[in-house]
């Protein structure tokens, strides 16, 4: 059993876990976390599959995963901004409902 194979398997488990969680969990923060775990799984899979097992690692997939990580962070930041604004809007609605009562 080789290192690449171990991590490729781990990546598959992480992908499954991420997809499952994003489907069943209701809290938005947790869904966003699950997407991040899904992403990490895909990135690990990418590198583990591309590596030949000996010698220097292939730089091309590393550059791609680097891009992928940056995209993931941007997406997470966007998601968190949305979550905050949803929360603010909910709070405002709750206050309005309280005043009406």
């Amino acid at each position: 059993m080789s290192t690449d194979l171990i991590y490729a398997t781990t990546a598959v488990v992480l992908i499954g876990l991420g997809l499952y969680t994003v489907l069943i969990r209701r809290h938005l923060v947790r869904k966003l976390m699950a997407v991040n775990i899904l992403g990490s799984g895909v990135f690990v899979l990418f590198i583990a599959l591309a590596s030949s097992g000996e010698g220097d690692a292939d730089p091309v997939p590393q550059a791609m995963v680097l891009t992928g990580i940056v995209v993931a962070v941007s997406a997470t930041a966007l998601g968190l901004v949305l979550i905050r604004r949803i929360d603010e809007a909910d709070l405002k609605n709750a206050e309005l409902a309280g005043e009406e009562r």
Binding site: I15, L45, F46, L49, A50, G68
Partner: peptide, 9 residues
């Protein structure tokens, strides 16, 4: 991207 990883691998 999973598909891309498999094809590149």
């Amino acid at each position: 991207l999973i598909g891309v990883a498999l094809l590149y691998g």
